Simulated assay, not measured.
Amino acid sequence: MNLSHERAGSYLIIAVNEPRVDSSNFTHLKSSLGDIIAQGERNLIINLSQVRFMDSSGIAGLLPSVHSLAGNGNIFLVGLTAKVLQLFNLSKLDSIFDIYPSVEEALKN
């Protein structure tokens, strides 16, 4: 999986540079985010603007990070396409994740 990182203040912005996050690559996302949190990062913005398709496996790649940071940091998801946002809405995970249209909007919070 192709991920890139950049810093904006206290946030680490992680861009997922893949068109799909599914059963073929979610374990890499899960382990990469786990490693980043283990290194002490507590405020993450995950940019999913290049992801055109995500299934339940993709969500499974994100959930452990939410549990790891519960009460000790933030994970913001940004740039979700309509199809990916629909998955989060239908699964009610939009109540667990803070979702913003852009990195700039997430940084305002």
Rank of each mutant, 00 (worst) to 15 (best):
M54C: 15
G9I: 04
G61V: 02
I96C: 12
S49N: 14
T81R: 09
R7C: 07
V84R: 02
F26W: 08
L87S: 10
L62M: 12
A8S: 14
Y11K: 06
N89H: 09
I13C: 06
F53S: 05
V78N: 00
F76Y: 13
F76C: 06
G61M: 05
V66E: 07
S68D: 14
G79W: 00
I37F: 03
I75D: 00
A38Q: 10
A38D: 13
K108T: 11
G61K: 01
I46S: 00
F97D: 11
D22W: 05
I96S: 07
I46A: 02
K83A: 15
R20G: 05
N89P: 01
M1E: 10
Y100V: 03
I75N: 01
L12F: 05
V21F: 05
A15N: 09
G58W: 02
G79K: 00
S49C: 13
E6V: 05
P64N: 11
D94Q: 13
E41Y: 03
M54G: 06
F97Q: 09
S57Y: 08
D94A: 12
Y11L: 04
I59C: 04
L85A: 14
V16P: 01
S10F: 05
F97H: 12
L87T: 10
V84C: 07
I45K: 01
F88Y: 11
R7V: 11
R42N: 07
L44R: 00
I46N: 01
V66D: 04
L63V: 15
T81W: 04
T27C: 09
K92A: 13
G71P: 10
A82Y: 10
A15C: 12
Q86F: 10
R7K: 14
M1F: 11
L85K: 13
Y100A: 03
I14S: 02
V84E: 03
S95K: 15
D98I: 02
M54K: 04
G61I: 02
A82L: 12
R42C: 06
S49Q: 12
E18S: 08
T27L: 15
I75H: 01
M1G: 12
T81I: 10
L62S: 07
Q39F: 11
A106L: 06
K92H: 12
S56P: 05
H28W: 05
G71Y: 08
I46F: 01
L93S: 09
S24D: 14
I46P: 00
H28E: 15
S57H: 08
V66I: 14
L85W: 05
F76M: 09
K83I: 11
E105V: 07
L77F: 08
G58H: 04
D94G: 11
G58R: 00
I99C: 02
N109S: 12
F97G: 07
I99T: 01
A70F: 11
S91E: 12
V16F: 03
R52D: 13
S102Y: 08
I45Y: 00
I75F: 02
V103L: 10
V16M: 10
